[in-house]
Design a protein around this nucleic acid. Structure first.
Lengths: 340, 340
DNA sequence: CTTGCTTTGAGGTGCGCACCTCAGTTATGA
DNA sequence: TCATAACTGAGGTGCGCACCTCAAAGCAAG
């Protein structure tokens, strides 16, 4: 039988009350008692029964995901995954919800964070935009005891908050490697399309991409980033101009999470099947692209995994435990038609 | 406040005892009562508190991983992951252990399974070899109430047992796609090395590989599989002969989980950096190979994920729940130097 | 009607722990 | 030395549920 707190108390020669004080960091315990208890824990291999702890505390966790209002298919996937998690975690005393706010206005985002009632939420996971105001607001939120996870995006990593997502430099580098190896020996230009180059994610991906192209595939020439700003008409026009002026485009790299707009635009002026196309994130569109041969590879981060990971981290923090690092790392996946 | 069983009973106009009978499938309940309870569950959104259930049942799960004795680095990774899981699940009433048995003798494996005491284990996860005897033994084990997971390997899928692992046909196809695209236009031969071609895994991978090469990269010619049987000296000799007779080897595909033996052999006769090399499984050796440029891509299935997935499935089955399919699917990962 | 069966209710116990109170004991320092 | 503070122990309660017993009620067939 595995030892209970009662066994612990007996083995340590102390009372249950004192053991309880040590286990739960209550005041009025002598250092000697603390030592004694901890030694005994080691000695007899005591582990608290988490079910009993959970039951006795009878406390539930309230977490909120804050996502942008704008965004296309990938955002839909994310919301869907949060909803899935919401249902499957309902039993485990975890209450989830999602809100969407205009994330491009740092001022509003900061205000949103400032207005969060720390008694209403134990943790917030947010795709936070890069801005000093937002960073400060996050800091203040954390000081009020709300656990914060930087979710997939934004912000230089705050030392006080956890981050869930991939290393975007590495993601860009991976895209470059795929493009370089897929294109092969022949020289050519690489078209790079982003929704915006304002965000830290885009910048880091571009950096990783350029570094690999320059060092390993110097026969390829990267064109300046094209920004779509989510505007299909405008994007199509720019793409048309660039494609007409550059006949030798060998590859297209879409570094935002939204590939649909630029690729549907480009498809009207050129045959994507003859070009190496690499995009980010698995969506119904990118899956179809892989199937049809219009997309050669997708660099992805599993949204379901990301959501679960954020929840696990917030839970661990709320319990004042360290998150289980290895399991919560998000991998940079490479998807081909064959391993969908 | 979320509803408890007591609330359920009140809302249903029944006693706690009857509700308990329905919830736990006890005998002597009228169909009417069952209906009434289930309706009320829906109506008020009752969910059993899993912590309380776990505490009241006060039952722990005993699972065993059965792995082969032979096998190199990847096996080590697996054992390591099980050990990690063992420690981290200790709290959650899950007792794990690992045993290694000679898995190449179906007779012994079948006997091993027959000798398992169903009172000692709730679930077994096993890298089962392909054999009718073993299949029957698994069937009988399942009939005795022990949950069984086919772990990473072997066996045509049994309909009665769960499977954790990747689709090996797709894994082979993915390897072929990478090799085909990395090699490019130039014709050449592809050297295929396996530890053995007896196992179902190897056969399926080879099938997927050939299908993609033949349909998409017909300028490549696959050589007959070379089998190492884990014997470094012999493998090196064969490789030397084959490499001398085939100057135009453009790529090497190692389809077993153990790449070290064949690649160290091949490295003595040829410069791997000039050849496209694709292997399976992330190990210290394959990581180093990616770094050094001796290996171009690794097709991997995350062993930690696989172990956790097997445990989750055994737990779900032991609780007579359905496993959570999406989360427990193992992905075919493509690892490059850039996304390690 | 009785006999025997099924169904229901009432109630209790315990799982392992958190959290609380109150009385009693031991150190601390003035 | 005594007063005060720091510490310890004993004991109780409740979290939500599983599992058990026993009595009572309902129901059917003979």
């Amino acid at each position: 039988m595995r030892p209970t707190a009662k066994d612990l108390a007996e083995a340590a020669g102390l009372s249950l009350a004192t053991v309880d004080r040590v286990l739960n960091d209550r005041p009025n315990v002598s250092p000697k008692a603390v030592r004694k208890v901890n030694e005994t824990i080691e000695r007899i291999g005591f582990i608290r029964n988490p079910a009993a702890v959970s039951l006795a505390r009878n406390k539930s966790y309230r977490f909120r995901f804050v996502l942008p209002t704008s965004g296309d298919l990938y955002l839909g996937e994310l919301i869907h995954r949060v909803e899935e998690a919401r249902i499957s975690m309902k039993g485990d005393l975890v209450d989830l919800d999602v809100v969407q706010i205009a994330i491009d206005d740092p001022h509003k985002v900061a205000k949103y964070l400032a207005d969060i009632d720390e008694n209403e939420f134990d943790g917030i996971a947010m795709m936070a935009p890069e801005s000093p105001q937002v960073r400060d607001a996050i800091g203040r939120l954390i000081e009020r005891g709300v656990k914060f996870v930087q979710f997939l995006s934004g912000q230089e990593k705050l030392p006080t908050a956890d981050f869930v997502g991939v290393d975007n430099y590495a993601a860009g580098a991976t895209a470059a490697k795929i493009i370089g190896r897929f294109v092969g020996q022949r020289a050519g230009k690489v078209l790079i399309v982003a929704e915006t180059m304002q965000s830290l994610d885009s910048i880091e991906r571009r950096l990783g991409f350029d570094d690999v192209v320059n060092s390993q595939f110097s026969h390829l020439q990267c064109l300046p980033s094209i920004e779509t700003h989510g505007d299909a008409r405008r994007a199509t026009q720019i793409l048309q101009r660039v494609l007409e002026n550059n006949q030798e485009v060998a590859a297209i790299y879409v570094l935002s999470s939204e590939a649909r707009i630029p690729l549907e635009g480009a498809a009207s002026f050129t045959d994507l099947q003859k070009i190496t196309v690499v995009v980010h994130e698995r969506t119904p569109f990118s899956e179809r692209g892989l199937h049809d041969g219009n997309i050669d590879a997708v660099i992805a981060q599993d949204p379901g995994h990301a959501v679960r990971s954020a929840i696990r981290i917030m839970r661990a923090r709320a319990d004042l435990r360290e998150p289980h690092a290895a399991q919560d790392k998000i991998r940079i996946e490479v998807l081909l038609k064959e391993n969908l």
